[in-house]
């Protein structure tokens, strides 16, 4: 499991990447983020973009949509975890079926949040993710 040297409650800031094909959702997540330690370093609209952005920004925390054009979220999770095992990924998806959730967790996701969500639900999920 992830043994990131930085602790969430510590001073060090975390780099956040948002992956979602919907502009609204990207901005929504960005706006809802109440954690000062979490600094947005980039947003991506699909898996391929996410991987590219990962190479440039090395994020610690990722929110990941599942149904996206080009590379989908499940595959992207697998790739990201392979590149950086300590990465923490919150799946944010409208797909509410169990098999999808299990699949995502198995690929290495750390949390699962169903769309639509409230600000509170998102922040709780992020807090849970960083625990």
């Amino acid at each position: 499991m992830s043994t990131n040297s930085a602790t969430f409650n510590g001073k060090r800031s975390f780099k956040l990447m948002i992956v979602d094909d919907s502009n609204i959702m990207r901005r929504r997540i960005e706006r809802s983020n109440k954690f000062e330690e979490l600094e947005l370093v980039g947003t991506a609209g699909n898996g391929e973009e996410a991987l590219e952005l990962f190479g440039k920004t090395d994020p610690d925390v990722v929110t990941m949509d599942l149904t996206m054009p080009r590379m989908d979220g499940i595959e992207c999770i697998g790739r990201l975890v392979a590149l950086k095992p300590s990465i923490r990924i919150l799946v944010v998806s409208a797909l509410a079926d169990k098999a999808t959730a299990v699949e995502a967790m198995e690929k290495g996701a750390n949390g699962f949040l169903n769309k639509p969500f409230t600000d509170r639900q998102l922040n709780e999920a992020i807090a849970e993710l960083m625990r």
Binding site: M1, G108, R131
Partner: peptide
């Protein structure tokens, strides 16, 4: 694994 807490695991029980 310690990846997920109990409630999350319960909610995704397939």
């Amino acid at each position: 694994g310690d990846r997920a807490h109990e409630n999350l695991m319960k909610s995704i029980n397939p």
